[in-house]
């Protein structure tokens, strides 16, 4: 299975398939609440796509649909061509996810947390240790790799959780508000890491409710409000289309566009 992942990732890079996360007109309701109403966007390889929107805009729901945790009521979502509903296992094989909060096991050490996911993803015992060493080095978590997660700071937890999401070397990464609650230095460290992952040619989907953060990191921005896409494009495109130079003003203007739709 692991070999297959590498092959998939390799083929993707070789063929230059540029659109790996594709969302087309998805809807999702929870009882009376219509959380996502026809969201569509593409996220290509080698780029960071930002999902930007106020709290409750439908970002997390969209990301959970991509992780196959929720089924869309309407519309489709595919990852490297694999459908999230009909081929969910293949989707999960190609995706690494960092949900809200780190979700580490407090009584396991950082290494054990990562090793658990490595084993679940079917990595052989012989490669696990090397893979963890690699991740520990790349994420610079060596100082606390053998300590139990209970004692970690928020930033440390986020880093380990990111390492855990990377353990099966997924081509696609879905990061749900990873910088929430992090201090300046930790945010900066995480941003550098995400840049590195992008340089590897991965497709990264990054959600946030902070305009500046998305602008600093993302190549493409997809602004979501009220469960709908307000605007999708590069930072400059968004500035142009909203006619606002200031990013925050552009964000507010984009939100206004949804209201008038």
């Amino acid at each position: 299975m692991h070999g297959a992942q590498f092959r998939d990732a390799f083929l993707c890079r070789l063929l230059g398939a540029d659109s790996v996360i594709r969302v087309e007109g998805i809807h999702k309701s929870f009882g009376e609440v219509h959380a996502v109403r026809g969201v569509s966007f593409d996220a290509p390889n080698g780029k960071i796509t930002g999902l930007l929107g106020p709290n409750g805009a439908g970002k997390s729901t969209t990301m959970r649909i991509l992780c196959t945790l929720l089924k869309p009521d309407l519309g489709t979502a595919t990852i490297d061509g694999a459908d999230v509903v009909t081929d969910s296992l293949a989707v999960r094989r190609r995706i690494g996810s960092l949900p809200h909060g780190s979700g580490l096991y407090p009584r396991l050490t950082a290494r054990e947390n990562i090793a658990y996911y490595a084993r679940l993803c079917g990595l052989g015992q012989d490669v696990i240790e090397d893979r963890i060493d690699e991740i520990v080095q790349a994420l610079e978590i060596g100082d606390f790799a053998n300590r139990r997660a209970k004692e970690f700071s928020h930033g440390q937890r986020t880093k380990v959780a990111l390492g855990r999401a990377l353990v099966h070397d997924p081509q696609n990464l879905v990061l749900d508000e990873p910088t929430t609650g992090l201090d300046v230095m930790a945010t900066r460290g995480l941003r550098d890491l995400i840049e590195k992952l992008k340089a590897d040619g991965r497709c990264i989907l990054f959600s946030s409710h902070v305009m500046q953060e998305v602008a600093a990191l993302c190549d493409d921005i997809c602004i979501i409000a009220n469960g709908m896409v307000a605007i999708h494009g590069s930072v400059d495109e968004i500035r142009q289309r909203t006619g606002r130079e200031d990013l925050e003003d552009a964000f507010v203007a984009a939100l206004g566009m949804v209201e008038t739709k």
Binding site: T68, P99, H100, G101, L104, C121, H168
Partner: peptide
């Protein structure tokens, strides 16, 4: 409660 269920269910495991 710990929030570890969501990433667990996002893994390629049934």
């Amino acid at each position: 409660e710990r929030g570890s269920l969501e990433p667990l269910l996002s893994l390629p495991v049934t």
